[in-house]
Computed example of a mutant assay.
Amino acid sequence: MAYQQPRLDHDSAAFKAAAQAEQELLRAYDLEETEHWFTYEKENLRLRVSEIGTGAPVLVVPGNTGDMFPFIPLIAQMKENKFFLFNRPGGGLSDGMNHQKVDIRPFIIDLFDHLLDELHLDKVTIMAHSMGCHWTLWYAMARPERIEKLVLIGNPGRVMLGKTPLPLKLMVMPVVGEFAVKKMVPKDYDHALNGLKMMGTSEQAMNGLPKAFRECYYRFQNLPYYQESTLSLLRTFNANSTNEIEANELANLNFPVEMIWGVNDTFATVDKGKEIAAAFPNCQFQLIQNAGHMPWLDQPAQVGQLTSDFIA
């Protein structure tokens, strides 16, 4: 029998609480969302895309396991585009995902093909963050004809990383990984933003976020299968170096790229960011002062303006 990926119960209290928290966050930023649902038949995955705004289309590929809500403060700064925010499998309100049960690179390429076809996007600008950048770069390498421009925000996953950092090595170990991911899940609202602090987001920025933002982190990270999705993602990309993206691969991508990097990003140094940017033939590197791995949370107006100008 074929493996069935974890399926979220849309009628459960946990699902409804997460959905409500996200709607409250959208209202806090005066945004309206249209939901698109489709099924990726090869894995029987129910996937969600959140459409916000009007104008030229931009596909948004979130980081971590794929929750779209952290992008809401940035989208609120950008009024000129229609954003399709992809709730990646394992995140958002899409079904859960055991990433170790698929051949990950062919899976991602085929999934993106299906996604763009569902949205009737022949060629599109993609804005991605963190692990979402890694997924996007794999797709861009396979389908450069479907990419208009790329905006890559934060350290872009396992790109030119070299040796696996010790914390990631520990995550792939049996028992240790399970314990670490369990500790990452907030047990109450007071600790809901601890992950942001670890990624270099300032206390001032966190204190300025609406209450609904904290509610979203608490609700989404306590959804069923969040821990399984997170741990399997980390293990898939960090168990060995076979999924590393090398500089010579980036050198073949000729479309315009903008990299936005917070000076306090805790996943890699500024020098590493500049090294990655230099590997692209046509890349602008934007360094954001007083900002972490999600630089738009610290400097929303600046990141919004830089991104809007580049896309335009």
Score class of each variant (00 low, 15 high):
Val303Asp: 10
Leu59Ile: 06
Met173Cys: 06
Leu93His: 11
Gly154Thr: 01
Glu43His: 13
Val303Tyr: 06
Val176Ile: 15
Pro281Trp: 00
Met259Thr: 07
Ala268Thr: 04
Asn81Tyr: 15
Val58Glu: 09
Glu41Arg: 15
Arg105Pro: 07
Glu148Ala: 05
Thr39Gln: 14
Met259Ala: 05
Lys79Thr: 11
Gly92Leu: 12
Phe179Lys: 14
Leu121Glu: 03
Val102Lys: 09
Phe267Gln: 11
Thr236Asn: 05
Ile72Arg: 04
Gly200Tyr: 09
Asp265Tyr: 07
Phe220His: 13
Lys82Gln: 15
Gly177Tyr: 09
Met1Leu: 09
Gly208Asn: 15
Glu145Trp: 01
Asp113Tyr: 05
Leu297Thr: 07
Phe107Arg: 07
Ala19Phe: 05
Ile153Pro: 03
His129Asn: 13
Gly92Tyr: 08
Gly55Glu: 06
Glu41Gly: 03
Pro165His: 02
Asn240Tyr: 02
Ala13Asn: 10
Lys183Thr: 02
Gly92Trp: 10
Leu306Thr: 10
Leu152Pro: 10
Glu249Asn: 00
Leu168Tyr: 13
Phe112Thr: 04
Asp265Arg: 09
Asn98Ala: 04
Asn98Met: 02
Ala212Glu: 12
Leu209Ser: 04
Ser202Thr: 15
Pro57Gln: 03
Tyr226Met: 10
Val124Thr: 11
Val176His: 03
Lys16Trp: 05
Asp11Glu: 12
Cys133Met: 04
Pro57Phe: 03
Gln20Thr: 11
Asp67Asn: 14
Gln204Val: 09
Ala17Gly: 03
Glu244Gln: 14
Ala19Lys: 15
Gln204Pro: 01
His114Asp: 14
Val270Leu: 11
Asp298Met: 06
Pro167Cys: 00
Glu145Lys: 10
Asn282Lys: 13
Asp265Val: 08
Leu297His: 07
Ser94His: 12
Val270Ile: 14
Leu31Ser: 05
Tyr217Ala: 07
Tyr29Glu: 05
Ala17Gln: 14
Leu116Lys: 09
Glu145Arg: 07
Val303Phe: 10
Val257Lys: 03
Val270Cys: 03
Arg146Gln: 12
Pro295Tyr: 06
Thr39Arg: 15
Tyr189Gly: 12
Val181Cys: 03
Pro224Met: 07
Thr136Val: 06
Ser241Tyr: 01
Val257Asp: 01
Gln100Phe: 00
Lys274Pro: 04
Leu297Phe: 13
Pro174Ala: 00
Pro174Asn: 00
Gly304Leu: 09
Asp271Pro: 04
Arg219Gln: 15
Phe84Thr: 11
Val159Asp: 05
Lys163Arg: 14
Lys163Pro: 05
Asp188Gln: 13
Gly53Ser: 07
Met160Trp: 08
Leu8Thr: 06
Gln77Ala: 08
Asp67Ile: 00
Met78Leu: 11
Leu74Tyr: 07
Glu246Phe: 10
Leu250Gln: 02
His114Gln: 13
Met199Trp: 08
Ser241Trp: 01
Asn290His: 14
Asn194Val: 02
Ile260Gly: 02
Glu178Ile: 01
Leu45Ala: 06
Arg46Ile: 01
Leu119Ile: 09
Ser130Trp: 04
Val270Gln: 13
Gly292Lys: 13
Ala312Thr: 08
His293Ala: 11
Leu59Cys: 06
Thr34His: 15
Pro73Trp: 08
Lys42Ala: 15
Val181Thr: 08
Ala14Ile: 00
Ser130Phe: 03
Thr307Glu: 04
Asn222Phe: 08
Ala76Val: 06
Val159Cys: 12
Glu80Ala: 15
Gln4Ala: 08
Tyr218Thr: 03
Leu233Pro: 01
Leu193Asp: 10
Gly273Cys: 02
Ile108Asn: 09
Lys182Thr: 10
